[in-house]
Write a protein that binds this DNA or RNA. Structure first.
Length: 467
RNA sequence: GGUGAGGUGGCAGAGCGGCUAUGCGUUCGCCUGCAAAGCGAAUCUAUAGGGGUUCAAAUCCCUUCCUCACCUCCA
């Protein structure tokens, strides 16, 4: 499998001979998570699912930034403590992402639980001459690391000229960034240099090195983290270990809202809770995976509505297969369906192996769905064919993290009895009575589909916006 | 200003030297007691403008124009 690496600006082969170690920069827990976080995390969740279906072991680590100025400010504003804020939003995070059908990562390390690891790292950097203590804290000496700028393709001279870096007389160079900030109010910890709290970037270096080693397979996050966060991580980690840091840097594109950047100041952020209430998890996942992960994607009502239509076709296909009758399959169709499923599998795998092209993989999936729906429409879909297609269908929907509504045998029997009754009434042209039964069935969230010779049904996911 | 990514049919979005991507929308049709869903056909020889390379270019090169992101916290 190849993945585009931001650092080398080329597609690189992912080493799958052993455990694939992935570090994903998670969220700062000071507010609700939004659709932008959702996209990045859904992409990595899908990647993990895909690798795992290929029997590749994955170790996914995703941190929580739970010490940060924004958290402190929020705590002050609410007259609360940083702990209260972070624990509230960590709980909120899991509620959101469980609903989004995101599988749990292997570990969710918190910055506050790794203070000593960070202190050790900073010590090492000072010993090696890459960091120094000043009046306000401990700083990393950017100019000492000669690879600085290699990820974001920035030149040190231009960064200095940019002059948008914070002015701080106590730093040796304006580009230097904080590893440790002195502070006399909580949250704070003791350190060899004085009380304070860690800078933002050091936590990811400390935790990724601790749990994944010096040179792990993938480091991921949103595009906006390339500079300065990931650039600084590289500087710290490589200065400390003396070797290369992550093998592949995988960055996910931004989510825009009606073509505009999503930001607090514009007031156009869409929280996960909001989008889930409106569209539900399957639509959101399908939407997030509908374009290539590296490109921006635009959230708009129209696009989401379009996704709903797509999803209905998948549901239709699923129910047609589940309700297919055990009748004789036309022999030529049997060969055809084997061919189609093989082709779909191939196309699907090729797409994902080639820089995780979920857009193409989804189109392969939809081709299969279309074929099944065609067969259903032509009354040629049988139990035998469905049994061939269903494992393929399930494998793909599982990789995308899509979840079809479950139906029990009891429900099946109950509905099939009602359908028989209704069809008898229809034959007797007692349409009003038949409609009463249809209403009764639709009250169970079930939609009937009348074919030429039989009636099937589906239990569709309820979409908030349609009610 | 610097750096990077792009500009593909009404829309979304793949392809990245030769082969209808795919999906949505719209219109018409099939099916139906009515509906819903589904299916079929059309829209659909679309590749920002101009040069060039090539037997062949959306795909490679040059150039012009435009868009977006990052350069401050951000997924």
């Amino acid at each position: 499998m190849k993945i585009f690496d931001t650092l080398s600006v080329t597609e690189r082969y992912l080493d799958t001979s052993d455990v694939v170690r992935i570090y994903l920069c998670g969220v700062t827990v000071y507010d609700e998570s939004h659709i932008g976080h959702a996209r990045t995390i859904i992409v990595f969740d899908t990647l993990k699912r895909y690798l795992e279906t290929k029997n590749i072991k994955v170790k996914l680590i995703q941190n929580f930034t739970d010490v940060d100025d924004k958290i402190i400010n929020r705590a002050k504003k609410e007259n609360s403590s940083a702990d209260m804020i972070t624990s509230r939003y960590i709980t909120n995070y899991f509620e959101d992402f469980d609903r989004l059908q995101v599988k749990r990562a292997d570990l969710y390390p918190k910055a506050t639980e790794h203070i000593t690891d960070m202190i050790d790292l900073i010590k090492g950097l000072i010993d090696k001459g890459f960091a120094y203590v000043s009046k306000n804290g401990v700083y990393f000496s950017v100019l000492k690391f000669n690879g600085y700028g290699k990820l974001s393709k920035k030149h040190v001279e231009e960064l200095v000229a940019g002059a948008r870096v914070e002015v701080d007389e106590t730093k040796k160079d304006p580009l230097d960034f904080a590893l440790w900030k002195f502070s006399s109010e909580p949250p704070m910890w003791d350190s060899p240099w004085g009380r304070g709290r860690p800078g933002w970037h050091i936590e990811c270096s400390a935790m990724s090195l601790k749990y994944l080693g010096n040179n792990f397979e993938i480091h991921g996050g949103g595009r906006d983290l390339i500079f300065p966060h990931h650039e600084n991580e590289i500087a710290q980690s490589e200065s400390f270990t003396g070797t290369n840091f992550a093998k592949i840097w995988m960055h996910v594109g931004m989510v825009t809202i009606n073509g505009e950047k999503m930001s607090k100041s514009l007031g156009n952020t869409k929280s996960i809770d909001y989008v889930l209430k409106r569209w539900g998890p399957n639509i959101i996942r399908l939407f997030c995976l509908s374009g290539h992960y590296s490109k921006p994607i635009d959230y708009s009502e129209d696009m989401l509505k379009e996704t709903v239509t797509k999803w209905r076709q998948v549901e239709n296909c699923y129910f047609e297969m589940n309700l297919a009758e055990n009748i004789q399959t036309r022999p030529e169709l049997l060969n055809q369906i084997h061919e189609i499923t093989n082709e779909t599998n191939l196309e699907f795998g090729n797409a994902l192996d080639s820089d995780f092209n979920t857009s193409l993989a989804i189109s392969a999936f939809f081709k299969l769905v279309k074929h099944v729906n065609q067969m259903a429409s032509a009354e040629t879909l049988t139990r035998e064919i469905s049994d061939i297609v269903l494992p393929v269908f399930h494998r793909m929907s599982n990789i995308f993290g899509l979840k079809l509504v479950e139906i029990t045998e009891k429900e099946k029997t109950r509905i099939s009895d009602l359908i028989k009754l209704r069809n008898t009434l229809r034959l007797e042209k007692k349409f009003q009575d038949a409609d009463v039964i249809r209403k009764q069935i639709s009250d169970m969230d079930i939609t009937l589909i009348d074919h030429k010779t039989r009636t099937t049904w589906m239990k569709q996911e309820k979409i908030g916006i349609e009610n």
